[in-house]
């Protein structure tokens, strides 16, 4: 996957260190190896590789991970511009 890198500095992934319990559940579900547990806290060691799928946030028992999940699909995004996020289910 190292051949495929997308825009840097855009991913909305945030880990709240206060809330993180260091269980490591997020590491297991991440399809891009973005997260690591360092000193008992999850941190994004490869933030730019995050594709915002939301697997980590969904499976964080402490609610410590936040991000804006979304499909990276142009037709979908155009619809969200036109109708707002609530009005579109898919592309």
């Amino acid at each position: 996957m190292k051949d495929f890198r997308y825009l840097s500095g855009v991913a909305s992934l945030r880990v709240d260190e206060e809330k993180c319990v260091g269980c490591g559940d997020c590491l297991e579900v991440c399809p891009h190896g973005v997260l690591k547990v360092e000193k008992g806290k999850a941190t994004a060691v490869d933030h730019d590789a995050c594709m915002e799928c939301g697997a980590c946030a969904k499976n964080c028992p402490a609610g410590a991970i936040s991000l804006t999940p979304g499909v990276g699909c142009a037709a979908y995004i155009i619809q969200t511009w036109l109708k707002g996020r609530g009005g579109v289910s898919c592309c």
């Binding site: 855009v10 399809p31 979908y76």
Partner: peptide, 20 residues
């Protein structure tokens, strides 16, 4: 090509929106 981002497993929604 931009629309193909939706079929890849590595582009983030935020990134695609910025690019668009």
């Amino acid at each position: 090509a931009m629309n193909f981002t939706g079929a890849t497993p590595f582009t983030s929604g935020s990134g695609v929106e910025k690019e668009m």
